[in-house]
Nucleic acid binder design. Structure first.
Lengths: 210, 210
DNA sequence: TAGATTGTTAATCGATTAACAATC
DNA sequence: TAGATTGTTAATCGATTAACAATC
């Protein structure tokens, strides 16, 4: 039941991949020290993370840049992307859809829907905003299994229910509220302001001490 | 040097505050069990978190809802808000500015700037987008000490440098790249896609096992 | 007093990091 | 061989949770 690669490690893989492409040096290898410096993490962390993927480095030499990048892409599933639907074509939904361009995560946003008639038909990063009423059809037709909620808090539970009815089993909730779903459906909640809040808290704490 | 309240706890406080207002029951108290159910966490977690704020419950009775809410607001600094500047008036910057409305975090977005002439003068959640060239003046005039980077990766380092020049010492970076700053400047990086990536990874892992 | 619920301790779990033997 | 760097172990750290004495 336990995932073979810890979440904290999964979260760092795209960062490594980005750093690798920037780090491309004349020689074909890089050390965990190089990568750690570029990514801003500890070098033991880097080696530990890579050990979960299997071993791909050479002692005394380092990691083959191309090999490593290929391995990271494979683990992240950048070849066989997960089709994702976003509900909510507002700023947050659009920001997420545009993030698709980054392409260092193994998913693919294939549909963005909204309840607002005015938004339906608009273009968001190459996708046409569709009506929320069609989600069951769209989900089935495009084999979508991950849904993203990017609507205001008051609409979140209703949207989640629609996702569940449509057969979605993994939901990411960006609305600042707790939503409920039947067992068998995985829900993750994300508060985009949480890091800002923690930063502000530390700042205030620092001043209190001074 | 260590913060008295763990980050993980700080991250949950706004959630508790929101749940409290929804939970407002006829009587004036709620138990850690009630709150845990509403917030989707363990009840021991709730009590432990509150113990960091000092003790505010009554054994055998629970927590006074108003007392607890007031205490949460105080710790989060909702009275003396931190002035925040956002650089980048695109979808992500706008989404963050609109998050301000939630008001369960102790900060206040007082300025949003952009480099794009076309965006300057636009309204975003009641703020007029200003020119990035004026940030030094704006930062000084409005006592801003937290800066948020919501621009594409290629512009992030330049924007960070401008923040540092303007005297900002806490930076939150939403661009998918690592940026560098002199010692004394705190930088936090946020990847808004990370949770989606982890969700997709678990999904794929689950299928692999099945 | 009896029942309920806190506050705290101790156990557990997971993630980070220092250290170093293995080995290229 | 000598130098460099991995892969892994063990120590450390921090966060979660079960359990229960304290006490309203």
């Amino acid at each position: 039941m336990k995932s073979p690669i810890p979440d904290a490690t999964v979260a760092r893989l795209p960062l490594y991949l980005r750093c690798l492409s920037e780090l491309r040096s004349p020689d074909e290898h890089c050390s965990s020290d190089d990568l750690a410096a570029a990514a801003g993490v500890n070098s033991a962390q880097v080696r530990k993370d890579f050990s979960y993927l299997g071993s791909y480095g050479t002692r005394g030499v380092g990691y083959g840049i191309d090999d490593l990048a290929a391995q990271l892409r494979k683990v992240l599933g950048l070849d066989t992307k997960n089709p994702v639907m976003i509900i909510g074509a507002g700023n947050l939904g659009s920001a997420l859809a545009n993030y698709k361009g980054i392409d260092t995560w193994g998913f693919d946003i294939v549909s963005i829907v909204d309840i607002d008639e005015a938004k339906i038909g608009e273009e968001v990063d190459g996708l046409t905003v569709e009506s929320i009423d069609n989600i069951a059809t769209i989900v089935a037709a495009r084999s979508i299994d991950i849904g993203v909620i990017a609507v205001p808090a008051r609409a979140a539970q209703d949207v989640a229910d629609r996702f569940v009815d449509a057969g979605i089993t993994s939901i990411l909730n960006f609305a600042p509220t707790v939503i409920h779903a039947p067992v068998g459906v995985t829900i993750r909640r994300v508060d985009i302001a949480v890091s800002l809040g923690i930063l502000a808290y530390h700042k205030a704490e620092e001043e209190r001490r001074a």
